[in-house]
């Protein structure tokens, strides 16, 4: 009887140990974590995910706010990795948030930093079509930005050096030497001709004074000439106006005369036609009269019976 009671206690203790073991395992597996977080997706194709593991930290502002719970390289897109994150639901993941891979310099372990936009925004709730969770776009890490800037600076420096080399080419150096030599020669010659230049300037000044004196005389002459030219212009304008009037009158008279000549010629032509016709008919009539007078018997005795017209009789 006593041994049976002991077996029951041993069995109960064993069951309790198994239950404790199962709870411990469940706790260690984090099975309860899902209940206190939200899931987000990110697709990485520009950043290396070296050192990223399941359960790697998801941080925001340097604080751990979640963990990586799954990742997979997309089939058919070798450079694109799909990462599923679990983020504490109290964490404000806003529209415009970016996901950046950060790596510990010593251990090489990677985590994902979530960077909200500085101006803030609405919580990221929208689930794209074909996805199960909201998608956080891939961002650009600070180090990469610095690297890109350094690369651009290097390229610009290279180009500047190339252009500087071109500027200092042998040909340009020779040209510069020649220019300097010419400049040196010119300045030397200028120094030698300086006295002559002084003399020339003095001569020019004297000439200007003379011209100034002449200018007064010339001004008087020009004024007189201007008056005379004005009178000549007035006379010319008057003459031209008179000539224009005369020409207009002559043109009108010529036009009238032309019309008169045309009219006269036309009427004369009509008269000539009529006169010629009358002369022709007079000639015909004269000829006919001569033919009638060729038979004096008819003139003396009148028409014969044979020449009578229809219905005519001799009494």
């Amino acid at each position: 009887m006593e041994s049976e009671a002991r077996y029951v206690r041993i069995g109960l203790a064993t069951l309790a140990l198994f239950a404790l073991l199962a709870f411990g395992l469940y706790w260690l597996a984090g099975g309860n974590d899902d209940k206190s977080g939200k899931r987000y997706l990110s697709y990485f194709q520009n950043q290396s995910l070296e050192g990223l593991q399941i359960n790697s930290d998801v941080r925001m502002q340097g604080i751990k706010v979640g963990k990586v719970i799954d990742y997979a390289i997309l089939p058919g897109e070798a450079h694109k990795v799909r990462v599923l994150m679990l983020v504490d639901e109290r964490t404000p993941v806003l529209e415009g948030v970016k996901a950046v891979v950060a790596r510990h310099m010593v251990t090489g372990l990677a985590n994902i930093d979530l960077e909200n936009p500085p101006q803030g925004g609405a919580p990221l709730m929208r689930i794209p079509e074909g996805e199960r969770y909201p998608v956080i776009p891939e961002g650009v890490p600070k180090l990469t930005e610095v690297t890109n800037t350094l690369e651009e600076l290097g390229a610009s420096s290279q180009e500047a050096l190339t252009r500087f080399n071109t500027l200092l080419s042998d040909r340009n150096q020779r040209a510069l030497d020649n220019t300097l030599a010419n400049l040196n020669r010119i300045t030397g010659e200028l120094a030698q001709t300086m006295p002559e230049l002084h003399e020339a300037v003095a001569s020019a000044r004297r000439a200007a004074d003379q011209v100034d004196g002449l200018g007064g005389d010339a001004r008087e002459v020009l004024k007189g000439a201007d008056d005379r030219l004005a009178r000549v212009a007035d006379d010319t304008a008057a003459t031209l106006a008179a000539a224009r009037t005369t020409l207009t009158r002559v043109d009108g008279e010529v036009s009238g005369l032309t019309g008169q000549v045309k009219l006269t010629a036309d009427l004369a032509g009509q008269d000539i036609q009529t006169t010629a016709q009358s002369l022709r008919q007079a000639g015909d009539a004269l000829q006919d009269t001569g033919r009638a007078l060729a038979n004096p018997a008819r003139v003396l005795y009148g028409p014969s019976a044979k020449s009578l017209g229809p219905g005519e009789t001799l009494r």
Binding site: T274, Q277, Q281, D284, A285, Q287, D288
Partner: peptide
């Protein structure tokens, strides 16, 4: 004026 032969003058 109408032209006319001598006969019809």
């Amino acid at each position: 004026e109408m032209d006319v032969p001598a006969f019809y003058q």
